[in-house]
Design a protein around this nucleic acid. Structure first.
Length: 472
DNA sequence: ATGTTC
């Protein structure tokens, strides 16, 4: 690997050499870069810099770690005319993302009932590995979901009309069900409206710190406010779409004579049959995830309303925002079109950038960053300097301990007891998933967020502490 | 992340 140079307190670079088209740039402090050196993160960032059409840098966010081909926490912007698109640059969980619901509830409104609320949500939202939704979808319904995303769910009365405007791309990107395999549809159909497993979660949280009063107030957030966060994606549907197109790309990269330093970076020109097909299928996977989060939103509102015995609308359970962190999008930056791959990276658009809901046009985009279940999550805001990474920031704490190592080291029951002492109630499908997702298996979220904040990838607005967690 | 090896 080429030499890694520290260029400022929180920026490292691998200079452009050999097959690299651009340098790699890594946002990290000393502790975070040390972790990245322990796996293939940096090598993968260098590999990505060799891909056709990449401009600027091959970026790694502070929560970066090794992934399939591309690092997780990676951003790569490809020139729209000459660049490639790669399933590895998006990841298996297409449009994995986060949605935050606000409320007008306070600690005392919910503390006594926090277990009941979480249990109700847990019961009302199917979760766990292989979990199936409660809704029987016809193949026509599923095609509609793959075409229009969250809009389908709202039209079916899962949520409110006003929900759509507070979702990235209004919960709908260009998709094409005919580019999605029958297998992906078969896996997806029974899973729409389910949480899944692993790091996916539903949380009741309290805002315990505000960093920017003015922006928080613009977002309708204040200290002591109760919020509900969900973190989930496109389930087996997106996973299958990714697998299918990695196979397609195995043929395509050879067909188009694309040189790649790692087989896992298989790709095709954006303007090729294979590239266009993947882009549309990926869009359908993204739409599935947005419809999924929309249905879950409806059931969360229903659950809270039924425990608190009030109309969810009177409880102010509005969407702050819903943002993807595994997606490729065609975006204009500096007057030029790019295919921006964000894999474990969150879009962070600043005020005046466009493509934002009206209410945020003069504030900037809410950036929602999920942390681990024992520590915190954050709301940030996109700022002008977010443009250094084509409008992107981190997506979470970033795993440091493998799932298998976590299971060896922790017992789920112990973690649940420990968190209970900290007044965090955990309801999980299995103790195993709690061990796998123990707070200790993640990097320090505060640290990751601070690096993003200090280096200007986004600005801190509010911190949310978990009170109750439902996990698959 | 994931019908955790079609």
């Amino acid at each position: 690997m080429s030499e890694l140079k520290k260029v400022s307190e929180f920026i490292y670079e691998i200079e452009k050499k050999g097959e690299m088209n651009v340098p790699a740039r890594i946002y990290a402090d000393d502790a975070l870069i040390k972790k990245m050196k322990e796996d293939l993160t940096l090598k993968q960032a260098q590999n990505v810099s060799c891909l056709s059409g990449i401009e600027g840098y091959s970026f790694v966010m502070p929560d970066g770690h090794q992934g399939y081909g591309f690092p997780i926490g990676g951003v790569a912007a490809m020139d729209y005319e000459s660049g490639i698109i790669s399933p590895g640059g998006v990841g298996y969980d297409i449009n994995c993302g986060v949605r935050l619901l606000k409320s007008n509830l306070t600690h005392e409104d919910v503390f006594e009932q926090r277990k009941e609320i979480i249990d109700h949500i847990f019961k009302n939202v199917p979760s766990g590995l292989g979990s199936q939704g409660k809704v029987k979808l016809s193949s026509k319904d599923l095609d509609e979901v793959l075409m229009v995303g969250a809009k389908w769910a709202v039209e079916e009365d899962y949520g409110w009309k006003k929900d759509l405007k507070n979702i990235e791309s209004e919960g709908s990107v260009e998709g094409d069900p005919t580019k999605v395999s029958n297998n992906a549809k078969k896996r997806g159909a029974p899973q729409l409206g389910s949480l899944g497993s692993g790091n996916h979660f539903l949380e009741m949280q309290i805002i315990d710190e505000i960093y920017d009063e003015k922006i928080a107030s613009g977002f309708g957030l204040k200290e002591g406010q109760i919020c509900f966060m969900m973190h989930t994606g496109s389930r087996g549907c997106g996973h299958q779409i990714c697998s299918d197109y990695i196979q397609v790309m195995e043929g395509a990269y050879k067909k188009y004579n694309i040189k790649i330093p790692d087989r896992e970076l298989v790709c095709a020109p954006i303007h090729s049959k294979e590239g266009e097909d993947y882009f549309k299928a990926m869009g359908s996977g993204a739409n599935f995830a947005w419809a999924n989060r929309q249905m879950i939103t409806h059931w969360i509102r229903e659950s809270i309303g039924s425990v608190i015995k009030e109309d969810p609308e009177d409880l102010g359970l509005d969407i702050l925002f819903d943002v993807a962190h595994n997606i490729a999008k065609i975006e204009k930056h500096n007057g030029k079109k790019y295919c921006v791959h964000r894999k474990g990276a969150t879009r962070a658009f600043w005020k005046g950038r466009g493509e934002l809901p009206k209410e945020y046009e003069d504030i900037g985009q809410p950036v929602i960053i999920p942390g681990d279940m024992g520590t915190a999550s954050y709301v940030m805001v996109g700022i002008k300097s977010s443009s250094q990474t084509f409008g992107s920031t981190c997506h979470g704490a970033g795993r440091i301990l493998s799932r298998s190592a976590a299971i060896k080291k922790f017992r789920g029951e112990d973690i649940i007891k420990r968190l209970e002492k900290e007044k965090i109630y955990v309801k999980a499908a299995s103790p195993k998933v709690v061990a796998e997702e123990a707070p200790d298996v993640y990097k320090d979220i505060h640290n990751v967020i601070d690096v993003c904040d200090k280096v200007g990838l986004a600005k801190k607005v509010a911190r949310l502490r978990p009170m109750g967690v439902a996990k698959g």
